[in-house]
Design a protein around this nucleic acid. Structure first.
Length: 416
RNA sequence: GUGGGUGUGGCUUAGCUGGUUAAAGCACCAGAUUGUGGUUCUGGGGAUCGCCGGUUCGAAUCCGGUCACCCACCCCA
């Protein structure tokens, strides 16, 4: 197969979109039930937004962005994640001057120049939720509850919630200092030696056995929280328990984006390979201010649709029903006008009607009808046109019922 | 960016100690007398064996390079 070209590395065509539609419908329904409304925003933004918003020390910004210069000389980047875009939009339209909280969700593609592997693409789709305004831990609990709700609604099992707090601008510097002091007494792997500068928290979940041993003894952020952060974290745990949402504290849980403060969490699912996080997020109380807005506490999460779909498939969960037509109309005339007309009339009534456009024989049309999975078949030939009646055949039982050659009558018959 | 694995018709594969027209199943199309499917039978279309180069009288089968996909690291959803 000498194709001229193929889909770019790390991108996917979706040939059967029914699972996607079912997934997205569930996500929307749950988001709406929690009082979130949809926001849509551009696929690319000024590069600076991500540099400042996501953090210019992160891998995502440093080496994974699709950045280009447009014909006006502006540096633009394909969105690598949604939160920065949402913040920009919310600020640009003065939403934070409206009644708080502002609760929004989105379903949108993200782009990162990464090496593809299981559960990791260069273009992936994310369901994200952002909430601006509340500082209380009950808001954290609600956002986590939203995630827990749609994961359950999808029928996913064995999904575990991991929780941690990484402190705020008050206590985190002290913790970082304590961590660095500890780590400087030990010899780490080459990678971790680089991480000390960039993101020392990452060392905590290094895969290297020696580093893991060191990490086990390392000071934990939860033990270095300031009073407010400690209270917040304790309250969150109380709220989750009150709602019956199980969780597991993971003092080594770290996130790779710079903007997180206090609460960080991940939902992990088995059966995904190494990339097992199906939803990840947390609080980012300083981000809005960093982007030039009024100091506004905020929180949210992102959840990869491809990974959700993979998890569902791994667990044998079929999302979405059949897209089959209600009715297949077979033409048995030399001139197929009667079939064409009736099909059109039925479609105007909202019936999912299909007919042959490949000039097949009647027998072949029946085979097509069978394979398409439609429930009923009607044959329209000279006899039917002359007599003004057709036989509506139920494919499962093979039984045929007479019916007037009339769209309304046929529609009524197959709809009950 | 680093490492490992794989690469034969739409799909899943056989062939791979080099040798006439590259095989099978599934899928697709058409038939099995007269206007009706799901089973069965018969026939048919479709691959220059990822790509380029090398070795050889001769390569899908050997060698080199390259690309792509998969998996892992890194990072993240």
């Amino acid at each position: 197969m000498a194709l001229l070209t193929q889909a770019p590395k790390g991108t996917k065509d979706v040939l059967d979109s029914t699972p996607w539609q079912a997934l997205e419908a569930t996500l929307r329904r749950v988001a709406h039930s929690f009082g979130f409304h949809e926001i849509r925003f551009p696929t690319f933004e000024h590069t600076e937004l991500f540099e400042r918003g996501v953090g210019d020390t992160t891998d995502v910004v440093q080496k994974e962005m699709y950045t280009f210069t447009d014909k006006g000389g502006r540096s633009l980047s394909l969105r690598p994640e949604g939160t920065a875009s949402v913040c920009r939009a919310v600020l640009e339209h003065g939403l934070l001057a409206q009644a708080l909280p502002q609760k929004v969700y989105y379903i949108a593609p993200n782009f990162r120049y990464e090496k593809p592997q299981a559960g990791r693409l260069r273009e992936h789709h994310q369901f994200g939720v952002e909430c601006f305004g509340p500082s209380g831990a009950d808001a954290d609990a609600e956002v986590i509850a939203l995630a827990d709700t749609y994961l359950r609604a999808l029928g996913l099992t064995d999904v575990s919630l991991e929780l941690n707090s990484i402190g705020c601008s008050v206590c985190r510097p002290q913790y970082h200092a304590a961590l660095k002091a500890y780590l400087s007494q030990h010899s780490l792997c080459g990678l971790c030696n680089e991480r000390i500068q960039r993101n020392p928290l990452r060392i905590l979940d290094c895969k290297n056995p020696d580093c893991q041993a060191i990490a086990r003894q390392a000071p934990h952020s939860v033990d270095h929280l300031c009073g407010d952060c400690a209270d917040h974290f304790a309250a969150l745990q109380r709220h989750l328990t009150a709602m019956g949402i199980g969780y597991k504290l993971n003092p080594l849980l770290v996130r790779g984006l710079d903007y997180y403060t206090r609460t960080v969490f991940e939902f992990k699912a088995p059966g995904l390979g190494a990339q097992d996080t199906v939803c990840g997020g947390g609080r980012y109380d300083g981000l809005i201010e960093t982007l030039g807005g009024p100091a506004t506490p905020a929180l949210g999460f992102g959840s990869g649709l491809e990974r959700l779909l993979m998890t569902a498939e791994a667990q044998g969960i079929r999302l979405g029903g059949s897209a089959a037509s209600d009715l297949y109309l077979c033409n048995a005339q030399v001139d197929g006008t009667a079939c064409l007309q009736l099909t059109h009339a039925l479609r105007q009534l909202g019936v999912k009607a299909e007919r042959d456009t490949m000039g097949r024989s009647l027998k072949a049309q029946m085979k097509q009808a069978d394979k398409s999975g439609c429930r009923y078949v009607v044959v329209i030939g000279d006899d039917e046109v002359a007599g003004g009646t057709v036989a509506v055949k139920h494919m499962k039982t093979g039984e045929q019922q007479p019916c007037a050659l009339d769209a309304q009558a046929i529609a009524a018959m197959i709809h009950n």
